[in-house]
Design a protein around this nucleic acid. Structure first.
Lengths: 248, 248
DNA sequence: GCCAGCTCCTTTCGAACGTAAGCATATTCT
DNA sequence: AGAATATGCTTACGTTCGAAAGGAGCTGGC
């Protein structure tokens, strides 16, 4: 990931919509170079372009959330991909790191099967012949493109895999990982019942935050892959709760 | 649907990729007008634009298939929508007419629930608050964005509705409707088991063709909605087989 | 040290783009 | 019927776009 791309994403994250020419001037490059960078970012699904402007993809979309802390998320996804062998099958939930994991698997592995409740992820790796997707049925959440509800539970029962990768919106000491959306948290529990280990992929920033809905995964082996900025305090909190911590 | 739009789609269907300026000249309008038309078609998902060019969306995508005989398909979809009351629930399969039906429902009805095995359709009506989607789980076909396989069967069993709307790739006298893809034909059967009536939405052109896989819907009440160009010969063949024919 | 090869950036230019203002033909209102 | 409004197209203009060609800076080999 080029350094300038990170700066562009950071600016876009705060300002949403900027002129190409103005952005080029602020970064001290020509408009041609700027356009090339923006095209590359658009190809990754992180931003959307219009004539003369660049703006963040809808933050409700996973694509928009990806733009935030993209570097860390990519490192985490790459580390997670190491856990998946060629020809393996994994469950993947709908978080933004999870989407990147699917993308990394599509780009670097052979013949991997991804079971997910995210239509975004299925579409995200659509161009790759090396990943085959199974989409769990359910009620389609319009903004997040994620399947939720009782049908997810029914579908998930049809499978059993080694690992389920999930995102998280927060961590509360003594309570565990949390999610912002009750329906999605429930979907995670349904999927977790069909996996022997749950791997949480999340940027360290999330540890300071608290989602509204505890994930509640009692009796599950849980580990987390996060970035190097996680503080000792949170790391100890995690390990006290029996969560294995891996730094990407 | 403007008359010129139909001509544009017809040209695009045969030539795939054309220059905006050249197209404007051929139709005798200014480039400004041409761009406006093309933008409108792009907004409907029928074509894709590049700097200076317009081209058909990938024909493997439903969007690309929609461009072909768009007028007829829209009429059929509108007629089919009349069968669906506000607040109703319908099953919809993955054909291009079915996608248009979902779009029409989204634009004209209130509080309709669409149960489908097509991730394309779920995404296609994503912007509408008046349609809620339930996506049936299954193996995700990369090119068509359709769910197939045994999981579709399991999921479909969780529901029962009045009507299932499906597409078809052909009709053979004495055999019935046919489909080009075995997996998708199987998905149709799974869904048909959970509906009291099957409504086939298809352009009249299809009656001269034969898909490779008979749909086989024994004991089902079957009707078809098609366009006015259906010949008497085929119409009688359909009615002999107990299929109710409606002209849109 | 220094040259070849490579990558990345810039300059340049004609073509394409979006917007606004103007004109002509329908349509509606009084 | 005649004026007011609406629709659809064109011309015109300043801006942005994509592609090609040239230059700066880095890397590796001798």
């Amino acid at each position: 990931m080029a350094k300038r791309d990170s700066i562009i994403l950071h600016i876009l994250t705060t300002e949403k919509k900027v002129e190409v020419a103005g952005l080029a001037e602020r970064l001290g490059v020509s408009t041609v170079t700027m356009r090339k960078d923006l095209d590359a970012l658009q190809a990754k699904g992180l931003i959307v372009r219009e004539h003369g402007f660049a703006m963040l993809a809808n933050p409700n979309d996973v694509g928009g959330r990806l733009a935030y802390h993209y570097d860390e998320k990519l490192l985490i996804a790459r580390r997670a991909a190491e856990l998946v062998p060629d020809g393996g099958t994994v469950m993947v939930e709908s978080g933004s790191c999870c989407a990147l994991l699917a993308r990394v698997l599509a780009d670097t592995k052979q013949n991997v099967t991804v079971i997910t409740n995210s239509a975004f992820i299925a579409n995200y790796v659509r161009d790759s012949a090396s990943v085959s997707c199974t989409l769990l049925g359910g009620t389609y959440q319009h903004d997040s493109q994620v399947m939720v509800g009782p049908l997810v539970h029914t579908c998930a029962q049809e499978f059993y895999v080694d690992r389920l990768f999930i995102g998280a919106d927060g961590w509360i000491d003594g309570v565990g990982f949390t999610n912002a959306d009750q329906m999605r948290a429930d979907a995670v529990r349904s999927m977790a019942a069909s996996a022997s280990e749950v791997v949480v992929l999340t940027e360290s920033e999330k540890f300071g935050q608290r989602g509204a809905v505890p994930m509640r995964l009692p009796g599950k082996r849980v580990s987390v892959i996060t970035d190097e900025n996680v503080s000792d305090e949170w790391r100890q909190s995690l390990e006290r709760s029996g969560v294995t911590v891996t730094i990407a």
